Structures are given as C-alpha cells and as structure tokens.
Simulated scan of single mutants.
Amino acid sequence: MNYMLKYSLACVVLVLALASCRKEPNYPDEPQISFKRIEQVSHDALGIEKDSLFLIVKFQDGDGNLGLRPLVKNPQTDIDSQTPFNEGSIYENNFIIKVLRARPDVNNPGELNFEELQFPDGLNLNGRFPRISNDDREEPLEGEIRLALEITNENEFYYAVGDIIKFEVFIYDRTTPVPNKSNVIVSEPITLFTE
C-alpha cells in the first residue's frame, strides 16, 4: 500500500508540474475566425430539392466573450437580450452570413464572378450562436462553431439545381457598448442539390 501511495503521489505531482508549465495562448480580444469546411447532404422531399448544410468555422478569442443566449420576451431578465443585443439591433445576431452566387463572367468566358444574393427585406441567414463559456470569466478560448442551414429550391428566385454558392461570414463578441467584429472569411464553393 505504501508503495502504491508513494508512486501515486509522484504521478499527481508530475501531472501538476506539467499542467503548470502549459502556457495559456495569447489571442487578441477581437475574435479571429477561419473556414474549416462545409458538410453537404442533398435530398429530394416530395419533389422539392433540399440541401442540409453544416458550415464549420474555427475561432480564437482572447477574452472568451463569445456567444449569446436566445432572446427573451422580458429583456430586463437577461443581459443578452438588452442593448446592444436587443431584437432589431444590428447586433441582435452574432453570426453574420452573406450568400455569394456564381454567375458567368461576360468578359472572361469560362470564368465565374460571385455576387451577393439579395434577399427581400427582413430575410437573411444570420443567427445567434450560444455562449461558448458558461461564466463571464475572461479567458482565451478556441474551438469550432457549427451552423446548420437548410436550403431548398422551392423559390427559384433564390436557388436552382446546380447553382454554385459560397458563404461570406463574420462574428461579433459580447463587448459593450460596441461588440468586436471578427475578420471576414469566405467558404469554399459548393454546388447545390447535386449529391
């Protein structure tokens, strides 16, 4: 038993020594993101083409204030529903997406230009991703945000079979009074409704 305690204690000391040697990363307070991948599953639902997309973005943030809780009806009860994150604010959503659709380049046959797809007022793919950390402690964080999107060809004004699109993305943190904006990234292109 003494033998076991002696070596167990040595292992615990070694683990603590190695853990204390680990240096915390030094990231800026403004979030930094990079494109990781898009996962795509195409299927036909009663004659309507559907793509289930998962957009995966890597992040790093120096103070760890990423993510927002869902909006609540009574904003006084939750800071994530108050100004500047309140409903209707430009910071209501913290994951901002533009859809870029390929069009033939009239000046260079065989080449493509990507143009922003214009939605009617009030429609977009923006969203709120949840808090990454459950406390308000300032600490560096890194990881991935995985956003699920459903795209259909129900309204041909938006998407058609064979459209080539990519996404332009940035995120906001919870800094007040003005949230920090991350860098802007662009995903790899995908062809819709083809799998």
Score class of each variant (00 low, 15 high):
4 M>E: 14
4 M>T: 12
4 M>S: 14
4 M>D: 12
5 L>F: 14
7 Y>D: 11
8 S>G: 10
9 L>C: 09
13 V>T: 12
13 V>F: 15
16 L>A: 15
16 L>F: 12
19 A>R: 14
21 C>Y: 14
22 R>K: 14
23 K>A: 14
24 E>G: 07
24 E>F: 11
26 N>F: 06
27 Y>H: 13
29 D>L: 11
29 D>Q: 11
30 E>P: 00
32 Q>V: 15
32 Q>W: 09
34 S>E: 11
35 F>S: 10
35 F>G: 09
35 F>C: 07
35 F>I: 10
37 R>I: 08
37 R>W: 11
39 E>I: 14
39 E>G: 08
41 V>L: 14
43 H>D: 14
44 D>K: 13
45 A>T: 12
47 G>N: 13
48 I>A: 10
52 S>Y: 15
54 F>S: 15
54 F>H: 13
55 L>S: 06
55 L>A: 08
55 L>W: 06
55 L>I: 15
56 I>M: 13
56 I>A: 08
56 I>G: 06
56 I>E: 15
57 V>T: 15
57 V>Q: 10
58 K>V: 08
58 K>M: 12
59 F>D: 09
60 Q>F: 08
63 D>G: 05
64 G>T: 00
65 N>E: 12
67 G>L: 09
68 L>H: 03
69 R>E: 11
70 P>D: 10
71 L>N: 05
71 L>I: 08
73 K>C: 03
73 K>T: 06
74 N>P: 00
75 P>G: 00
75 P>H: 02
76 Q>R: 08
77 T>L: 12
80 D>Y: 01
81 S>T: 06
82 Q>A: 00
82 Q>G: 04
83 T>V: 13
84 P>I: 01
88 G>I: 04
88 G>Q: 02
89 S>M: 06
90 I>V: 10
91 Y>S: 08
93 N>V: 00
93 N>Q: 05
94 N>A: 03
94 N>K: 02
96 I>G: 00
97 I>Q: 02
98 K>C: 01
98 K>V: 01
99 V>R: 00
99 V>L: 01
100 L>E: 13
101 R>W: 00
102 A>I: 05
103 R>S: 07
103 R>Y: 07
104 P>M: 03
105 D>I: 01
105 D>H: 00
106 V>L: 09
107 N>D: 10
107 N>W: 04
108 N>W: 02
109 P>Y: 02
112 L>I: 00
113 N>S: 03
114 F>S: 02
115 E>L: 09
116 E>P: 02
116 E>D: 04
116 E>W: 01
117 L>A: 02
120 P>H: 01
120 P>F: 06
122 G>K: 04
122 G>I: 02
122 G>P: 03
122 G>Y: 05
123 L>E: 09
123 L>R: 06
123 L>D: 10
123 L>K: 09
127 G>Y: 04
128 R>P: 03
128 R>Q: 03
129 F>K: 08
129 F>Q: 08
129 F>A: 06
131 R>M: 09
132 I>H: 03
134 N>D: 10
134 N>G: 13
142 E>N: 14
145 I>C: 04
145 I>F: 07
146 R>E: 13
146 R>K: 15
